[in-house]
Design a protein around this nucleic acid. Structure first.
Length: 414
RNA sequence: GCGAACGUAGCUCAGUUGGUUAGAGCGCCUGACUGUGACUCAGGAGGUCGGGGGUUCAAGACCCCUCGUUCGCCCCA
């Protein structure tokens, strides 16, 4: 077959799948609003620097996964691989320092040049939550709780586990990082090739290695808690206590490390085993240094992103679409009457399906296929008496209804 | 970026050790039923077997390349 195909790693969202996405996004949007997170949007592309500086030059996303291009003006642009950097840029660009805490919800397409798999695409969609300008642990708790509430509303909480860890403040993390590098350098000869690469890029990642040889070495590695200063460890304790208070179960995972440079303190992931290698459905953390990196005044922040495709695969069925009513004119005279009637009923708020062609049998079949609740037949018989035949397609019963009271009769039926 | 499996109709899949005009179910179209669906029956359309090259008298089957999907790694949502 040489039919035109979509670009690798991109997918069409046909109505059925789109409805599932809309369900995930709509549920998240509604829950976010209840938590006081207003929806916003930023451009789909930014100056490359926005992502490169914040996410870290050595991160996988920046070093090999960005869709970058040179604009006609000669500047380097990048299709956004995540939402956080763009929202923080917008926070600075619009001078929102006085609007803190700036609590927002956003959703839209993201782009990463990765090898596609199930639950991993080159264009995918995320829901995103950010709380900028709050240094309190209460913000961390609220943001995680919002994630949990959304998963709950989607009916996927049972399939997910909340993994949580702290990366400490910059001081703590740098001290720990130095200790780790020292330790692993001493064991360089027995580290896997992957971990040797990680040693320069992101040594904390070695802790999470799946390689058996690495794991043996990791057993003896320095422990993060020994390097956390009291502020960092007190902060984390407060976050965990807050989650417990809300009855949100978590699994303390001391090896949880995020791949992006900007994370500090709280790091978390809601993970599932139901999606193969792609376990994370919602993930995020605190990024106290990010705004400063972008050139803003030092401003703390915390947020997360959730994969809509991944959530849609796990979520309950989307609520059924509105069932239409099929309007079926019989004969040329009835055609014009039906057209006017359909227009009026639609303005009255009723979903009307009217086929463009076909005899009554075909139109009835089509009505059935569209899951219509009822069919209205209008022919010469009915026209002379100003009535129509209203057929209940579920019950299989029909009766005559005066055109004048059709609108209210349908309302009662639907 | 690394390793592996798979790719036959719109969809799900058959297709013997290479051997005539490549099949089924579902779906679609038409009719039985020119004013009545979800049932039934009868017909019909739809395939350059992902694409390109090679081996052979002969390739959907075998070989190479390529594109795509899936699984694992890496990484992430």
């Amino acid at each position: 077959m040489s039919l035109p195909q979509p670009v690798r790693g991109t997918h069409d969202l046909l109505p059925e799948e789109f409805a599932r996405h809309a369900h995930v996004q709509g549920t998240a949007r509604e829950m976010a609003a209840r938590f006081g997170y207003a929806e916003m949007a930023t451009p789909i592309f930014e100056f490359t620097e926005v992502f490169a500086r914040t996410m870290g030059e050595s991160s996988d996303v920046v070093s090999k996964e960005m869709y970058s291009f040179e604009s006609r003006s000669g500047e380097s642009m990048t299709l956004r691989p995540e939402y956080t950097a763009g929202i923080c840029r917008a926070f600075i660009s619009n001078g929102l320092q006085q609007n803190v805490p700036f609590k927002v919800f956003a959703a839209g397409p993201m782009f990463r040049y990765e090898r596609p798999q199930k639950g991993r695409q080159r264009q995918f969609h995320q829901i995103d939550v950010e709380c900028i300008g709050a240094a309190e642990a209460k913000a961390d708790i609220e943001v995680v709780a919002l994630g949990a509430a959304i998963l709950d509303a989607l009916g996927v909480m049972e399939k997910c586990t909340l993994e949580i860890n702290t990366l400490g403040d910059t001081e703590s993390r740098q001290a720990y990082r130095a200790a780790l590098v020292d330790y692993f350098n001493d064991h360089k000869s027995s580290l896997s090739q992957d971990s040797l690469d990680r040693l320069t890029r992101n040594p904390l990642r070695i802790l999470d290695s799946k390689d058996k040889g690495d794991r043996v070495i990791v057993e003896q590695a320095p422990i993060f808690t020994d390097y956390l200063n009291s502020y960092s460890s007190d902060f984390f304790d407060e976050v965990l206590e807050g989650l417990s208070l809300l009855g949100i179960e978590y699994h303390l995972n001391r090896r949880l490390v995020r791949g992006l440079d900007y994370y500090t303190h709280t790091a978390f992931e809601f993970v599932t085993t139901a999606l193969g290698a792609q376990g994370a459905v919602i993930a995020g953390g605190r990024y106290d240094g990010l705004i400063e990196t972008l050139g803003g005044k030092p401003t703390p922040g915390i947020g997360w992103a959730g994969g809509i495709e991944r959530l849609a695969m796990l979520a309950d069925e989307a609520p059924a679409a509105v069932r239409p009513v099929a309007l079926i004119p019989v004969g040329e005279e009835a055609d014009a009457v039906a057209a006017k009637l359909a227009h009026q009923l639609r303005k009255d708020g009723i979903s009307i399906e009217m086929a463009f062609k076909g005899n009554v049998g075909k139109r009835m079949k089509r009505a059935n296929k569209l899951n219509a609740r009822a069919a209205i037949l209008i022919g010469e018989d009915e026209l002379v008496r100003d009535v129509c035949t209203l057929r209940d397609l579920d019950q299989g019963e029909q009766s005559e209804v005066p055109l004048a009271s059709l609108s209210s009769a349908l309302r009662r039926l639907l």
